[in-house]
Design a protein around this nucleic acid. Structure first.
Length: 734
DNA sequence: GTTCTAGAAC
DNA sequence: GTTCTAGAAC
């Protein structure tokens, strides 16, 4: 409509908006904040917005959904809207890994620069801030915060320019942050900043410098005495306070007391290839030495927390370590663990120096705990110790009692190279010693609470490491979970992304990319109602194992031409195995035809064989073998599950009903059905998942899972007659 | 398959 | 106030 107007003014009016638009376009910026909770992202953006003459929009995931935590998608939308409005945007979420950042980077354009401001402050500072703050918008408070921050920092990938940033500013301390606030606050509407990466000291450092220096204080035994630092330390440290002080990390040039725990609690043969592969956390008793926490109470808490976490740590194990075999706490815990019948292959006690468990005790522990005493004041342990502590604690001064800090060890560190320790978890317990700071004055209510928190944080940290290892292993099974000595196994490959050693070569097999399906249609399944569902990536692991069992050697109990036998990763009973068919294309029961009967019989036979083997070890076990009508995991698999259903992994109605309704099809019945009708009759009915919870023996109904579980642990009724027929149950001959 | 968490149920 | 479930996200 303006096109016909010809006066000068009007021409100018026509051109002006275009020009203004261009100008506006140029001035938009995305500043992506990168940092853990507590690193000060929100404060940073607020401080900039206070002084800036630009128009900023802060996109904060913690508050985006009407003040509550929202989704990444919501953030993307708000950012897009703001950019369309020619505003500049702060992306205020952690953005700690490349994947999380990638979608926001796509919002960049020739007119919109994307900057990163990395708030790479000491982990302790972030943790203590997150723990302390109340009413934080993201609701990340209290003890949980420490675990969350730890987990996040472990996965941290610092941003690089090649991701698409035009400028990256690294802030390693408060002063850097102040500078960056000034820089961005002073940025006028049309100003630009030089491109490039600023402020990063060591591009590949994942570990805080202070802690790296701290760790370097661990020297091999033969040269530690030459090191004036450790000499001083061992001289000046009160032997009675060894455990709580950082002396755990000073080399102890002594052989005394380095011996395996000779007492009754069984310790799996250390040093064998098998045990080397088990993620293991060695930890001292927290707070019982220098912090004078009551030993009896402490031992109860250790047992309580060990029991709580034993199921969460997957294939990992926990080892309580003390220097002397006469240790009271060690003996208390040992007796209680025996009384409680705790699996001694997953938790045991060990006598030795926690920094030399592998070289002096033959016990490989990839993670060790340091019962920290960050608050050690100068009089505590001599100048060297003071410096070390200060460095490790950074500007924040301390970690909070009850919290833990996971520190990955550089591969160059002695602990890593010599002992195979890949992580140290620092944990601070409650103090009952009036001679030490923050004494709780015999307040054991509070003390026990903090000690529980401390163990929770410690075990949580370890759980997270185990999880990461397992994930890495699943992603690339040729990368061993083992870390002994990890420097020999994966350092180069991690750096260069190649595997050339012979042991890895032989697993390479045919040129099939792991995780990439050969046939796209094979990831789909036809459900009963004629719809097609896609198998999610998490649902593919059994298929992968069945196709390449050698790659998963240590997770597999048996490999034959027909089947692979393995322990269910999340057992729903004391014993829960899977017999997985190896035939490609047999995803589930609907794919089974008469020609597969021999295979089904083979699966049944292998399942019975394993059930009988387990029964011979534990005659009270009773097994049922069967298939799920609509399995979640791809690749036909037979469940061999003991009927106690005593497992922490059995958590909800669906878990129960998949094993205790018609959804569960007994192997014997399936084979009979196929023989008769040519295929299995499925009970793929969603409503079966929501039927009331009934005891598998007396068939009584129960209102919820905890009540049901408590009932089945006591119910002594015989199995119902239908289960006792046709060999549906495998049980010990009486 | 699990984890996380809001809100229902108690 | 605490326990438990169910649904979304992964």
């Amino acid at each position: 409509m303006d096109s016909e107007m010809t006066t000068k003014d009007e021409e100018m009016e026509e051109a002006a908006p275009q020009k203004a638009e261009e100008e506006k376009k140029k001035k938009s910026k995305i500043v992506m904040l990168v940092g853990a909770p507590g690193s000060g992202k929100s404060t940073f953006s607020e401080d900039v917005m206070k002084t800036s003459s630009r128009s900023w929009v802060r996109v904060c995931q913690d508050t985006i959904a009407n003040g509550k935590t929202g989704t990444k998608a919501q953030c993307l939308k708000k950012a897009t809207d703001a950019l369309n409005d020619w505003k500049s945007v702060f992306i205020d979420r952690c953005n700690l890994d490349r994947e999380q950042r990638s979608e926001f980077l796509k919002l960049g354009s020739p007119h919109v620069d994307v900057h990163a401001v990395v708030l790479d402050l000491p982990a302790r500072l972030c943790i203590s801030r997150s723990v302390k703050r109340t009413g934080h918008e993201g609701n990340l408070q209290g003890g949980k915060a420490a675990a969350v921050v730890n987990r996040m920092l472990q996965k941290k990938e610092l941003p690089k320019l090649n991701e698409g940033f035009s400028r990256i500013t690294f802030c390693l301390n408060e002063k850097d942050v102040e500078e960056a606030v000034k820089t961005y606050g002073a940025l006028g509407p049309l100003d630009t900043l030089p491109s490039g990466s600023f402020g990063q000291k060591n591009p590949d450092a994942k570990v805080q410098l202070g802690i790296m220096k701290f760790m370097k204080k661990v020297k091999p035994p033969n040269n530690s005495s030459k090191d004036p630092v450790s000499k001083q330390e061992s001289k000046e440290t009160n032997p009675s306070s060894k455990e709580q002080d950082v002396v755990a990390f000073s080399a102890q040039n002594t052989d005394k007391n380095i011996k395996a725990d000779g007492n009754s609690r069984e310790r799996p043969a250390a040093g064998s290839a098998m045990t080397n592969d088990i993620p293991t956390l060695a930890f001292p008793s927290i707070s019982t030495a220098d912090f004078q926490f009551n030993h009896k109470k402490a031992s109860d808490i250790i047992i309580e927390k060990v029991e709580e976490f034993l199921d969460k740590i997957g294939n990992g194990r926990l080892v309580l370590v003390d220097l002397t075999s006469g240790s009271r706490i060690l003996n208390l815990v040992k007796v209680k663990a025996e009384q409680k019948n705790i699996d001694s292959s997953k938790f045991f006690t060990f006598v030795g120096d926690i920094t030399q468990l592998y070289t002096k005790g033959g016990l490989h522990c990839n993670v060790i705990a340091n019962a920290a005493n960050w608050r050690l004041k100068p009089r505590g342990g001599g100048p060297a110790l003071e410096i070390a502590t200060k460095e490790a604690a950074g500007d924040a001064g301390c970690i909070e009692p009850g919290s833990a800090l996971t520190v990955p060890l550089p591969s160059t560190s002695q602990l890593h190279k010599r002992e195979g320790v890949t992580h140290v978890i620092h944990v601070l317990g409650p103090n009952m010693n009036p001679q030490r700071p923050d004494c709780l004055n015999n307040d054991y209510d509070k003390g026990c609470k903090i000690l529980r928190e401390a163990y929770s944080s410690l075990f949580e940290g370890f759980t997270s490491i185990v999880r990461t290892l397992t994930k890495e292993f699943n992603k690339d099974p040729s990368k061993s979970v083992s870390t002994v000595p990890s420097s020999l196994i994966d350092q180069r490959s991690k750096r260069e992304g190649v595997f050339e050693s012979d042991s890895n070569k032989k697993y390479k097999g045919p040129k099939v990319e792991v995780g990439v399906e050969k046939k796209s249609e094979s990831t789909e399944r036809f459900t009963g109602d004629g719809t097609i569902k896609t198998w999610g990536s998490w649902a593919q692991s059994l298929h992968r194992m069945a196709m390449d069992p050698e790659k998963y050697n240590k997770d597999v109990l048996e490999i034959s031409d027909d089947v692979v036998v393995l322990n269910d990763l999340y057992p729903k009973a004391q014993k829960h195995l899977l017999v997985v068919a190896r035939k490609d294309g047999l995803d589930r029961l609907t794919d089974v035809r008469v020609e597969h009967l021999p295979l089904l019989r083979a699966m049944q036979n292998v399942g019975v064989k394993w059930a009988m083997k387990l029964i011979s070890d534990e005659p009270s076990l009773v097994f049922r073998l069967g298939y799920h009508s609509d399995p979640s995991m791809r690749q036909l698999h037979l469940h061999v599950v003991s009927q106690d259903f005593n497992s922490t992994h059995l958590k909800n109605k669906k878990h129960w009903n998949t094993f205790n309704t018609a959804f569960f099809l007994d192997s014997v019945d399936v084979m009979e059905e196929i023989e008769k009708c040519g295929k299995a009759k499925l009970n793929d009915n969603e409503s079966l998942m929501s039927v009331e919870l009934r005891c598998n023996k007396c068939r009584s109904a129960h209102p919820n899972i905890p009540r049901l579980k408590s009932h089945i642990s006591r119910c002594r009724a015989p199995f119902p007659s239908d289960l006792l027929q046709n060999g549906r149950l495998v049980l010990a001959p009486n």
